[in-house]
């Protein structure tokens, strides 16, 4: 079977791991701790493919019906 990257699939929104400084500005913007972000398991196929570790924050860019594009952030957790 041909190997392909999950990230290239049409229905998988864009996931990326954000850098330390971006994390800080995100947490500052919403005045929250990391734990108050939505979570995503490390075993999630996309996270596995990205190779993120626990504590990283994934930025998800989704297509939105109302806004065109919308941003979500998820904290990678142990499962």
């Amino acid at each position: 079977m041909r190997k392909f990257s999950l990230l290239d699939h049409n229905s998988v929104p864009k996931h990326e791991i954000i850098q330390e400084n971006e994390v800080k500005s995100l947490l500052d913007k919403y005045q929250i701790e990391k734990g108050q972000l939505p979570k995503i398991k490390q075993s999630d196929p996309v996270i596995k493919e990205l190779g993120a570790s626990v504590g990283d924050i994934a930025k998800i860019t989704r297509n939105s019906q109302t806004a065109g594009e919308s941003l979500y952030y998820r904290l990678v957790i142990d499962d």
């Binding site: 108050q36 972000l37 019906q65 806004a67 919308s70 941003l71």
Partner: peptide, 22 residues
């Protein structure tokens, strides 16, 4: 007030209400 949708613990459910904050 920052247009995010949160539950009682302050955990964010939606970063912008309705994704467009409108």
């Amino acid at each position: 007030y920052d247009r995010s949708v949160r539950e009682t613990r302050g955990v964010i459910v939606q970063f912008k209400y309705g994704e467009d904050g409108i």
